[in-house]
């Protein structure tokens, strides 16, 4: 099994690991993420029907609703959030949910960014480990 190490940038630090769930299109969590279960419910999105709870979710950025932050915060509180989220640029909506989760429950969500080239190397079902310094260690059968 091959292993690659990608140099991510830390948005909100935190060690995390999980199975990757990857899409190249943005997602609004309001109307797109069921915070009771972790299911992706945007029926137009390629990940519709998949469950992101405890996965490492990789999407380029958020779209749409201002309510994305509140949905992610609620998911963090309900333990239905992804283990970490990887984006291609710093996403203010995700970052805020993580910062507020830290303020309220002392449980920030690990967030890192990868440049577009490295992001494109991620595939669903890869095993991903994220270090506190933002390294993204990918090991997967499919690499």
């Amino acid at each position: 099994m091959e292993r690659i190490v990608l140099e991510g940038k830390v948005v909100v630090p935190g060690e995390a690991q999980g199975v990757a769930l990857v899409a190249n299109e943005p997602l609004s969590f309001w109307g797109g993420y069921d915070q009771k279960t972790g299911e992706i419910i945007d029926r137009r999105h390629v990940l519709s029907g998949q469950n992101a709870k405890d996965k490492v979710l990789a999407i380029p950025f958020t779209r749409g609703s201002s309510t994305t932050t509140a949905v992610l915060l609620d998911a963090i509180r309900a333990n239905t959030a992804p283990a970490a989220i990887i984006t291609t640029e710093t996403d203010f909506f995700f970052a805020l949910a993580s910062v507020v989760a830290d303020e309220l429950f002392s449980s920030p969500l690990s967030l890192v960014t990868l440049n577009e080239n490295d992001f494109a190397k991620l595939k669903s079902d890869d095993n991903i480990q994220i270090t506190a310094e933002g390294k993204v260690i990918v090991s997967g059968v499919a690499i």
Binding site: W30, Q35, S66, T67, A70, V71, L73, D74, I76, R77, A78, V100, A101, L104
Partner: peptide, 14 residues
């Protein structure tokens, strides 16, 4: 203020 939209316990707690 969009935070008025009720989603669940976390937003209310905030």
């Amino acid at each position: 203020i969009d935070s008025t939209v009720y989603i669940g316990d976390a937003g209310l707690e905030f």
